[in-house]
Amino acid sequence: MECWDTIADYAFRSIGYGPRLLPRTDFTLCQQFTLIGSGMIWNIYFGALALCTGFILAVAVAMGKASQNPWLRKPSELFIFIFRGSPLFIQFFFAYFFFQSLKSVSPFFGPFSSAALGALIVLFLNTAAYSAQIFYGALRSIPKGDLEAADAYGMSGLPKFRRITFPTMLRLAWPGYTNEAIFLFHATTLVFFSGFPARQQGGDALYYANYFADKTFNPFVPYPIVAFYFILLTLVVIGLFGLMNRYLNRHLPQDARKKLRIRPQIIR
C-alpha cells in the first residue's frame, strides 16, 4: 500500500508537482520505478513535439533538396549535412551557448535557455534533418509512372503534390521514418545528461536514474529500469506507426501490403 502513496506523491514530480525534496534515504524499488517513470514525461514531451513539428520542416527541406533551384537546394543540403554530420551531444552544447548569449540581447530569449524550449528546438531541427533525408530518398524513388499518370490527368502544382507526390513519398518513407521516431525518443535522454540543466530536480528518466545510481551507488537497478521503460515506449511507437502504415497502404490488396519492418536507418 505504501507504494500507492509514493506514486501519488511522485508521479508528476518531474514537472514540478509533488514534494519538493526527492527521497534521500532508504530507497525502495517503488520509488525508483515511480520517479524514473515520472521522468519519462519529459522524454515523451520532447519526442512527441519534436516529431510533429519536425515533420513539417522535414517535408519542406526534402522538397528543397529535390528542387532544381540551387537557391533552395543548396541551403537544404547544408542544413541536412550539418545536423546529420555532427553529434547531437555537440549540437546541444552549442545551442545552450547560443541561447545563453541571445539572452543578453533581449530578455525575450530568456525561456530559450531552458530545457523545455531550447532542447526542444535542437531536437526539432535535428529530427527535421534526419527525416528530410529519408523523405528525400523516398521522393527520388517514387515510380516514374505515377507522376506521368498525374500529368496525363492534367494535374499540376498543388493538387499533384497533395494527391500523388506526398502520399507516395510518405508511404515509401514510412518504415525509415518509424526508425527515426524510435531513435528520436532515445535521443531525448541526452537533453539533461549533457546539454541543459535540470531545474528543481525535475528531469527526464535518465536524470532520475542517475540520481538513484548516485545515491545508492548501484547502477544495476536504475539503468535497467530506464531500459525497461524505453522498451515499452519503443513498442508503443512501433504499434502507432504500424497503424499509420496500414492506413497509408489501405489501397493495396491485403497480402501485397508490406509489413512494417524496422530497420535501423538513422540514429544519431
Partner: peptide, 27 residues
C-alpha cells in the same frame, strides 16, 4: 542536496565549471 532543501530554485549542472558559467551568464 542542501540547495534543494532551502527555498531556492535549484539548477544542476554536470561539472563545477558549468555552474560558474551559469552564474556569469545570469542563468
Amino acid at each position: 542536496g542542501y540547495v534543494a532543501s532551502t527555498g531556492a530554485a535549484l539548477i544542476e549542472f554536470a561539472t563545477p565549471e558549468e555552474t560558474i558559467a551559469a552564474v556569469r551568464a545570469g542563468e
